[in-house]
Simulated assay, not measured.
Amino acid sequence: MADEPSADHLFPAVRPGAITLARHGEPALSRKIRLNAPAYGEWWARYEEGGLLPGQTPPASLLTTAQRAGVIVASTRRRSIETADAVAAGRVFARDPLFIEAPLPPPPWPPWIRMSPKNWGFFARFWWWFFDHHAGQESRAEADTRADQAADLLIGLSENGQEVLLIAHGFFNTMIGLSLQKRGLKKTLDQGFKYWCVKRFERV
């Protein structure tokens, strides 16, 4: 008597969909200024509330990814929502504070030290990452936990085979990507850290 076909043969497992992490478009707030540490803290607070610089066009590749995605998710920051609006072509997308950027409190340096927001961002991230300087905001350990939660949520959304597109923030996307890789996904595309750029992760 021939062997009966197994349930796995009759109903093969669904291959999880790809997960794409996109950085938002360019914000409107100018970086062409020099600030001391307290002023940078105020600048970052305005950056967190602001939207996109007008007149931008999403890359064709990101539009294609959005069309292919079964679900699109954005953080609750305005710059992420406006980016999602630009690529979703009228589709409804989810908004979740789980995906907001990790904080950037400036190091407590003397007020005579003045730098551009770009340089302050680098040193603030360095102090936050290596010295756990969080000034009462989210710590690195807390952000690591949040990144793991975000990765688990995205994996869950992709398990039925649909592709998932997250539109969020540069550094926290990197942290989510590390969590995805710890969970066995492989980075198959990395466009870097510029605005509108993406990183793609898949089960291989």
Rank of each mutant, 00 (worst) to 15 (best):
A39G: 08
G50A: 11
A18V: 14
N160L: 05
D132Y: 08
L104N: 07
I19H: 00
S6T: 15
S139K: 05
W196K: 10
D148W: 01
N119K: 09
P5A: 05
A151W: 09
R183V: 03
L180R: 02
R146I: 07
E48V: 14
R68E: 12
P107F: 09
R78V: 14
G136P: 04
A66F: 12
L98G: 00
N173C: 09
M1K: 05
L62T: 09
T76E: 09
E4Y: 12
H133C: 07
Y195W: 15
P97V: 11
G70Y: 07
A39T: 06
T65R: 14
S158Q: 07
E49N: 05
E49C: 02
W43V: 05
H169V: 12
M175L: 14
R203I: 07
L157D: 01
A18P: 06
V71G: 01
Q137N: 12
P54K: 07
W109Y: 08
M115I: 03
G25D: 06
S179G: 10
A143D: 08
L62N: 04
L189F: 00
G192R: 01
R23F: 05
Q181L: 04
L52D: 00
A150R: 09
P54D: 03
L21T: 04
G17Y: 15
I155R: 14
M175D: 02
Q149M: 08
W127C: 08
V87P: 03
R95N: 00
M1A: 12
R79G: 00
R79L: 11
E159D: 10
P117C: 10
F131Q: 01
W43F: 10
S80T: 15
L165M: 10
E159Q: 15
E4C: 04
R203M: 05
L53M: 14
D190C: 05
A18R: 15
A124E: 09
E142G: 11
R95D: 00
K187C: 13
A74Q: 09
A69D: 04
T83K: 12
G156R: 11
A86Q: 09
V164R: 08
P5R: 06
A86C: 03
A141R: 13
L185F: 04
P110S: 04
V71D: 02
A89G: 07
G70Q: 07
P27E: 10
M175E: 09
Y40W: 07
L63Y: 00
A89L: 11
T145A: 15
P110W: 09
R23H: 05
I100S: 03
E163F: 01
T174N: 10
D152G: 12
A89P: 01
Q149T: 05
D96E: 14
D144F: 07
L165K: 11
F123N: 00
I176V: 15
D190R: 04
I72Q: 01
I113G: 01
A39E: 15
C197T: 15
S80V: 06
N36I: 05
R125E: 08
P103Q: 09
W196I: 10
W43A: 03
D152K: 13
G51I: 15
L29C: 00
G51S: 13
E48Y: 10
S30H: 02
P105N: 04
I72S: 00
M1L: 08
A124T: 11
W43D: 03
R77Q: 15
V198L: 01
A28V: 15
K194M: 08
R79C: 05
K194D: 14
P97K: 13
P103V: 11
